[in-house]
Nucleic acid binder design. Sequence first.
DNA 1: CACAATTAAGTTGTGCACAATCGAATCACC
DNA 2: GGTGATTCGATTGTGCACAACTTAATTGTG
Lengths: 164, 164
Amino acid sequence: MTATTRTTDTPAAAEPDWLRLDRQICFSLHAASRAFNGVYRVVLKDLGLTYPQYLVMLVLWERGDLPVKQLGEHLRLDSGTLSPLVKRLEAAGLVRRERSAEDERSVRVRLTGEGTTLRERAREVPRRIVAATGFDPAEIADLRDRLDQLTDTLDAAAVAAAAG
Amino acid sequence: MTATTRTTDTPAAAEPDWLRLDRQICFSLHAASRAFNGVYRVVLKDLGLTYPQYLVMLVLWERGDLPVKQLGEHLRLDSGTLSPLVKRLEAAGLVRRERSAEDERSVRVRLTGEGTTLRERAREVPRRIVAATGFDPAEIADLRDRLDQLTDTLDAAAVAAAAG
DNA sequence: CACAATTAAGTTGTGCACAATCGAATCACC
DNA sequence: GGTGATTCGATTGTGCACAACTTAATTGTG
């Protein structure tokens, strides 16, 4: 019943492990990313934030008011993603967007009182997320380091592949 | 460690490392997932496939024709994602959708000749992806295992949190 | 000063993820 | 055999990611 009839004549031996590993790692990373998203969706529901919106708020809480440009640099997101996202945060009353006086091309994202206050209610979030992973801090730190390394290498490879 | 001027009165001691780790791991996973997507975008361009479309084709190449339902189980995706995706594959001439005779609720996704042939051109993809990661197969296998474990734990936690 | 190049946001269009909902087919149970 | 529950898929609506393009402000150079 598991046996769907193989239409191809390709024996398993023709596809070595490392060929299949690729599928595994892309499956796994994709699935892990979405699983994380799912946990954040549940945990952030009370705050009325999505996962990317929470990331933006984290940066603002930590760094203070920032232009959209710098927000994008911290999060590696472009204006096509950030513009509507920040507008939704503004509609929710958490931030205001203000044209800079010195450089009128720039829009500064400023926390409102409500946005600042939300930080208090968000304090429980990290603890709940860490608990949900079932990993201890050392394991998380190790995984994070590997993922960061992977990201750097992949970014460089994508640039090289696009250029070459 | 506190390079930025803290506007809050919260001393660093009140926010232990593991509180900040959360942000790191969510940043890292998010970034790694998008970086992977970027590499696949470049590598799959020639084939005219997106990353999720490639995942669907991988399943079909390996398992043969499948109903949408089982496709979703393999990929952990629901019909809201798969229906339009499969239609785009059909529009590209790679698959056909056929209502099952035994159970008319079910739609079977069948590879066309063109869809089957595409597998040959896709053979180079895994090698290029593995190369782009800069990891050797053992490291990839280890990372994959951790991510799978993480996904399982997170899925369970999301269900538990939603229920409780 | 004038004008080309650059930069910051925003807009448009495509595609993915997922919740909620619906219609049709099937199944279970009386 | 009829009726309620379940299953499959499709659809709708919201939000994110990113490429390509537009607009407006700024900078650099003659």
